[in-house]
Design a binder for these strands. Structure first.
Lengths: 358, 358
DNA sequence: ATGCTGTAGTTAAGAGCTTAACTATTGCCT
DNA sequence: AGGCAATAGTTAAGCTCTTAACTACAGCAT
């Protein structure tokens, strides 16, 4: 591989001049540029990034951090969409994206991750941080590495982007309440493992309280984000609370599991049971029937976070941002049906999609 | 940030000794190691990766290359699963993963991508290469950068991992034929844009020919991998060929779209129409009904590719590998129903899940 | 003429690490 | 005692680039 030296020699100038030409630092003639570029082309010179990084202290590498906490991140479609958003912006800026997936456990730091952050290899980072008690950005703060947080694990002075979880909770609960449901079950995850979900719940609660409904009384089941857990939770809730006419699920995958389970138990969706999701993953739209859910605008979150990071790298101090969400009207919600007798043995033949009954 | 020098000084030894201790090169006493490690801890020393890369010519960075070709890669759930498999192995080895997504277009190389490959920043790469005419690994070959290809875009001497697409095609076609279907429609993508799909088709063809069925005669529609395109293709095929009793889709997303569309057209799945997918993405399992499809073993492919790369980096010459696939028996396939009159207006009320008719 | 400014290019000092080549010491064999 | 091998550690060169400091010189106002 040819080096700067080789190029300089061939062009008949010094290495400093070549470096200037390549980085567009002023003070060289058009003639010189031509000579240098010719030499670069002839030799097929490509700068060595390690040397450049060492000399200039800039690597042009940005870390994208998706911590493994309670959930294997690679099973969440949302991850991919956020990643896609981030990627488009990073690529535009000519940077490279290092994907890091530390195993975060309270009081047991991921040494490899810490080394990476402290190694000077990174110009900045974008981290998902939604779990209380463990932080992916903390090491970046310590090293004063420019960082943007996606989520709630932030401190004063951090730059962050968040989905408007509170509003999402409000919107979905409002939708369900306005359809007339009062006997509502919640499929969520254990307390305090994800702050985004906490805010969704708070949004739901605020709507309930405004309408005089005791949110705390609504039966809950705790899953782990997975489809299977959604099915399990639905089985549990529907068995224990036969009066339920709606299940609000805190993510789409659990909602899809819940729907399948409800069907097995003889419920038609949405006629006998309203089910909602949250996230707006692609599978929710192609589900049958399409899920009523909240679109988080995942690619937008990724793009926004990346843009913000580049602002910071350029010395600006961008404002942190809440990304709005929107309700997707699918076909899994309907008015509650007037107290049917849910005996699984007596599924009537009329359990078909379009029910023309009054 | 403290440097090697600082550590050496504090430990009262030379930088060379510190370097040896840290890299476990022989010839130092336990006593020396203790002193060095103490100094490292006290100073919180972390080696500068750029300097290390420059001096040693090793960066401990592996590129994972998912080219954008005909399809935005971030909308394919399979991507995420392969990525997850790769990630687990790379992390185990203490390497870092640089995610690169070049825009590959014939005769218009992605300059930024080329620079990255040639920049000496990478110790190796894993690339998905399934599209004829454009190659993600080619630059790696030119630079003699250790590489493992996932897919068919290989040359003599390349290391590769492939899913057994031919067998997958055979399995799914055999399954459908054995159920008794003869009027079969194919939902695929345009010719020559993806070699993996070509082999799936060839597998299907071989089975047909062995049974005296003229594969070329089967009606086809061409989508673009997306759910929506699957719906469009199904609409087209079912309208033009009312005799069809089965639709074989070359990926799961198109299958899900096809199923939704078929339902809109009054077909019950699987009673009136058998539909199959391919890939075994998570959404296929949580679909209603669960898709009959081929499990590609995506995480396994990723892991295998990564392991193979590390073998190469250690100087071994691993054997390239075909990863077996398996048929997932979902609930979207059934025996063909004896020539029903598919008038959308006359959906009978008995269109329910369990049909106890003889 | 003198001094100043601005431009074009060079020199050389790092940036922080690895490693080949070297020195020094010890233990062991004959 | 002499020679050799193995061990422990040091010295210093080198990896490739950036950049501050410098030289050289033309153009211009005073």
């Amino acid at each position: 591989m040819p080096t700067l030296q080789d190029v300089a020699q061939r062009a008949g100038v010094s290495t400093a001049t070549v470096s200037k030409v390549l980085s567009n630092t002023p003070y060289f003639t058009e003639e010189t540029r031509r000579k240098v570029m010719a030499a670069v082309d002839e030799l097929g010179y490509v700068p060595n990034l390690a040397a450049r990084a060492l000399a200039a202290g800039k690597t042009h590498i940005v870390a994208v951090v998706f911590p493994y906490v309670y959930e294997p991140i690679f099973s969440d479609p949302l991850t991919l969409r956020i990643l896609g958003g981030i990627e488009s912006v990073i690529t535009q800026h000519g940077y490279n994206m290092l994907l890091s997936t530390p195993r975060l456990v309270p009081d047991a730091p991921d040494e490899h991750y810490l080394q990476l952050i402290r190694s000077g290899y990174l110009d900045g980072m974008i981290a998902i941080d939604n779990v209380p008690g463990v932080s992916a950005v903390q090491p970046a703060r310590e090293k004063a590495l420019p960082a943007v947080v996606i989520g709630y694990g932030t401190r004063e002075g951090d730059y962050w982007v968040r989905s408007d979880d509170f509003s999402g909770g409000e919107q979905i609960m409002t939708h369900v309440l306005e359809l007339g449901h009062r006997e509502i079950g919640l499929i969520t995850v254990p307390e305090n493992i994800n702050m985004a979900l906490e805010y969704r719940l708070e949004g739901m609660q605020s709507v309930c309280e405004a309408r005089g409904i005791d949110f705390e009384r609504l039966p809950r089941a705790h899953g782990d984000f997975s489809t299977e857990s959604g099915a399990r939770c639905a089985a549990d809730l529907l068995a224990r609370h036969r009066e339920l006419t709606a299940l609000l699920c805190l993510n789409d995958r659990m909602a899809m599991g819940a729907i399948q389970q409800a069907r097995l138990m003889g419920r038609h969706i949405p006629r006998d049971l309203t089910v909602t999701g949250y996230d707006g993953i692609p599978a929710a739209a192609s589900f049958a029937p399409p899920l009523t859910t909240i679109d988080q605008g995942a690619p937008d979150i990724g793009q926004t976070a990346a843009r913000m990071l580049f602002d910071v790298l350029e010395g600006a101090t961008p404002d942190s941002l809440v990304v709005p969400v929107s309700l997707i009207h699918g076909e899994t919600t309907a008015r509650p049906c007037p107290v049917p007798d849910h005996d699984p043995a007596s599924i009537s033949p009329s359990t078909r999609k379009e029910d023309p009954s009054p």
